[in-house]
Design a protein around this nucleic acid. Structure first.
Lengths: 185, 185
DNA sequence: CAGCAACTTGACGCCGCGGCCAAGATAGTG
DNA sequence: CACTATCTTGGCCGCGGCGTCAAGTTGCTG
């Protein structure tokens, strides 16, 4: 690979990080190209497809954020707190980072890094759900699929209702959490 | 207006009722045209725009359904039951009738009949919310705007997650309703 | 039955985006 | 310096839907 090509690859990666950060993983590749100072064709030449480009940046862009949540939530006390805090932080991440939202919603075509990332978040959530249900603090009729849906739903909402303020969004999340608690809790 | 034109107008209206019923108010007009056995141009000639066509059918298509809900719910006993049943039925209507969903989400450009219809549903909901809050059975921090949002959100979800079964959808609505009740309820 | 006004048609331009590729530019080597 | 393999460019096509209009057709009237 020639030196200029290597430079371009790096430039495109940086540009993608930047553009995807604010616009999500579905931003037109022309914008990435413009930000990188190359043409659209070069991106396709270097990364094969949008998916290829995403795979090249998703780790740095999203994995860390999800890892942070898992780590922080895992350190909390009490199954209800952990469960609710996990959902809350994930939902807020979906609001704050369109790219993370895209991963959680499985918007881009599946690929190995994306699946890995998604599964990691998913598994963790299921563990928390199970613990919380065992402790009797969360509705027993909530299924792992429901959990996935709760996150998917929120993603859809974030995408569609982009005019709502973060504060309003946050306040309304509390309504949803309440609905998931066990009746006696 | 010539006889064939009058026939066509009626045919287009019928076709629109049919097509919009299953596909919502954003179905491509070519489909309506095909169903009516005319060309797209004729629709534009006769109704001016998609909005014009919608106005011509929305009454028959949606108003009745919303009216039914208001009537049925109004006859129920107890402010909590009325409030919850109103939301539940509206949410199910959104699932069952894409066209009604479009109206409730204000998808098509505003027009007088659409606004009227929307406001009617909205006012009724606000009344029920107020009654329920006065009775102390629904969270006091729920605002009328939240109510609008709860319906808008559901609309977005219905549109995006069209693979979920009605039963699952219905079951999950219960989670949401629980979250809206007053803490002691 | 002629002739015109009313009516209908369907192809066309437009838009934004995705993906591709022939032609031109350039880095690095002998 | 010249040459070639590598690389980049940007224009082109496809897609799906909207809205329009010149040209062709048809109902109605005298």
């Amino acid at each position: 690979m020639r030196a200029d090509a290597r430079r371009n690859v790096e430039g495109i990666r940086r540009a993608a990080l930047d553009v995807f950060r604010t616009g999500g993983l579905t931003t037109p590749l022309d914008e990435v190209a413009r930000a990188a100072g190359v043409s659209k064709g070069t991106i396709y030449h270097r990364f094969g497809s949008r998916t290829g480009l995403i795979d090249a940046v998703v780790e740095e862009l999203v994995a860390a954020r999800i890892g942070d949540i898992i780590e922080a939530v895992d350190a909390l006390d009490g199954p209800l707190l952990r469960f609710e805090e996990y959902l809350l932080r994930t939902w807020l991440l979906q609001y704050d980072e369109p790219a993370a939202n895209d991963v959680l919603m499985r918007v881009p075509p599946d690929s190995e890094p994306l699946t890995t990332l998604f599964e990691r978040a998913c598994q963790f959530g299921r563990r928390l759900l199970h613990e919380a249900q065992t402790a009797g603090v969360v509705r027993a009729d909530l299924t792992p699929d429901d959990l996935t849906y709760l996150i998917l739903e929120r993603g859809v909402i974030v995408r569609a209702c982009d005019q709502q303020t973060r504060d309003d969004y946050h306040r309304r999340l509390d309504f949803v959490l309440r609905g998931l608690r066990a009746a006696r809790g």
